[in-house]
Design a protein around this nucleic acid. Sequence first.
DNA 1: CCTAGACCCTGTACGC
DNA 2: TGCGTACAGGGTCTAG
Length: 269
Amino acid sequence: MPELPEVETSRRGIEPWLAGQTILRAEVRNARLRWPVDQEIIALRDQRVLSVQRRAKYLLLELEKGWIIIHLGMSGRLRVLPQPQPPEKHDHVDLVISNGCIIRYTDPRRFGAWLWSDDLRTSRVLAHLGPEPLSDTFDGRWLYQKSRNKRTSIKPWLMDNTLVVGVGNIYASESLFVAGILPGRAAGSLSEEEAGLLAESIKAVLLRSIEQGGTTLRDFLQSDGKPGYFVQELQVYGRGGEACRVCGTPIQLAKHGQRSTFFCPACQH
DNA sequence: CCTAGACCCTGTACGC
DNA sequence: TGCGTACAGGGTCTAG
């Protein structure tokens, strides 16, 4: 489900309800997520939340004595419940907050994760991550340099977290459309100019999607229950066979490493 | 080192 | 209605 804009949308949704508050305890009804929910989270008692941050697609809750690292996986979702409600089938984790609300984690596929870290510098899941796409260290020069001698197709290459984080299946296709670059080309075939254009396109697409509260394809909802509205602005993703919004040519569907890729054969070169 | 593929799990959509 | 199959927005690990 969630790529960077959806995770950032979730962060912004829960931050006002969490920051400065105290987590009284966690209720872990099913600890069997992608990895077992860490014992420190299950045993958590009365810790103040100092900040709510994001790194890549991970949410980071800074507590007095350590960090909760949350990943939403493919189908994870966080909601703010102003008042307690009985849990349903896939509501695996609750955070019970001192202000009376509950932060509820729902994840039917259980590809998500709830991990504890005493020190983020030693966190295994964060160790090998590349630059944030919206930071200044990510730019055309970086992309160009990393693309040299790469024979992989550009599209799956963009989803490699050591290159840049947060770009998933939707935004890889969307960014390549905006940049006018065919997804099946070898990464090493990028010119300096194209690399610059691609970096700028990634930033623009992600920023716009965050503004719109992310993309709701089927089950993503913001923490207040509203869908993300960027789906209305998708140019190619999920539009196989439909007319390109720019030139009218039918959008094509291809597969790169089992995953769907969408592109316009006329607008992209 | 690079690259492609399998795998973790459940729900949904679709063809027969 | 029921069953089998393919597919879904992620990330890690392994094999070649």
